[in-house]
Simulated assay, not measured.
Amino acid sequence: MVTGTSSGIGLHTAVGLAHRGLRVVATMRDTSRSDALRAEAERQGVELAVRALDVTEHDRARACLDEVTAEFGAVDILVNNAGSATFGTLEQLSDAALRKQLDVNFLGVAALTRHVLPSMRRSGAGRIVTVTSNGGVVGEPFLDAYCASKFAVEGLMQSVAPVAARFGVTVSVVEPASVVTNMMENLDTEALGVPDDPYRDLAETFLHAAGGQMVNGQAAEEAAAVVVEAATTDTPRFRWQTSRAAVDFVGLSLADLDGGTVLEAMSAWLD
């Protein structure tokens, strides 16, 4: 089962797993947006099942999982890919905006993962792969809520991983850097709508820099190939980066014991 498959990494992950001979259930909030997925699957000569699933509707997500299990059998591999991004520094963000971001990127992932764990634990096998972000390791200006939610997912999965491993279940995270997707188009920039906002100039500078990173980023197909590898490899590991840029960016934080290197690098994005 792969979430968030209407476009980008999720779409290519679902098709890529099907290409490996796996029976794939591709989920998305609105199945009327499945045309691109179906077209790519047809182009590559693979079949997959498409189901509606909104990760924020926990009861409905559980019902979807039950329906999938009844039709196809227990889920052997779960790829948590669905997510969204909210723009704004903390002073600009309402409590509602923070909760919405956490609901999609953290609580939805946690709920769906919890749903699949019992059957995986009983069978003594399973893979849970969660697409996080380099923003789950490095806090980025004006992506406060997004990075907080991705940091939370990384912490959750790293905590679950050694426990799940005792029952034969492998937990991994995949950390893309800039990927050419429609994320910037879908970025929730409501926080920029305040007149005379003292953060506006800094925010626009960051958006310009981030937009350039996205345009020159990794292809979604390449990032998805790493997700597929993480889900199917005979030599799994916890943390995967999808590109050299992701390795370098994530490495800023993982090797930065006092935090100074990350703050200096991120400050440069505001100049």
Rank of each mutant, 00 (worst) to 15 (best):
P141R: 01
A85E: 09
A164H: 06
D35R: 15
E154Q: 10
A223K: 08
T132F: 07
R60F: 08
T181F: 08
T205I: 14
F72C: 03
R23G: 11
M1W: 01
D59V: 13
S123W: 07
D103F: 05
I128L: 07
V25Y: 02
F167S: 13
Q241T: 14
M28E: 01
L22C: 09
A36G: 10
Y146F: 10
D54L: 07
M183W: 13
P162T: 06
G136A: 09
G73K: 01
A125T: 15
D196R: 15
C147Y: 06
V2G: 03
G83N: 02
L202K: 14
A41N: 05
F72D: 05
S34W: 06
Q158N: 12
E264G: 13
F249A: 10
T3H: 02
L254C: 12
G83A: 08
V109H: 13
V171E: 00
G83D: 01
A111Y: 00
Q241S: 11
A110I: 08
G135H: 06
R51E: 12
C64R: 10
M184R: 14
P141Q: 01
V68H: 04
A49V: 08
D248C: 00
L254F: 10
V129Y: 08
S178N: 15
K150Y: 10
G139E: 08
V25I: 10
V153C: 06
Q218S: 12
N182G: 15
A97H: 06
A230E: 04
D54Q: 04
P195A: 11
P198K: 03
L192A: 13
E42T: 12
W240N: 01
L37I: 03
A63F: 03
F87I: 05
V228I: 06
H19V: 13
V129W: 07
A49D: 11
E222N: 12
S94G: 07
M157P: 06
E185L: 13
V129N: 04
S133W: 02
D144T: 15
E264N: 11
A203N: 09
D256K: 09
A225D: 01
T86Y: 06
R99S: 10
T69R: 12
R51C: 05
T130V: 14
T170G: 11
R62Q: 11
L117D: 02
A191S: 15
V109C: 10
S172P: 10
G16V: 02
M184A: 12
A219E: 09
A26K: 02
F106H: 08
F238L: 13
T130R: 04
T27N: 02
S253L: 04
A70D: 11
G139C: 03
M120G: 10
R60A: 15
A191I: 10
D59M: 08
L156R: 04
G83T: 00
N216K: 14
E185N: 15
G8N: 06
V109A: 12
L48A: 05
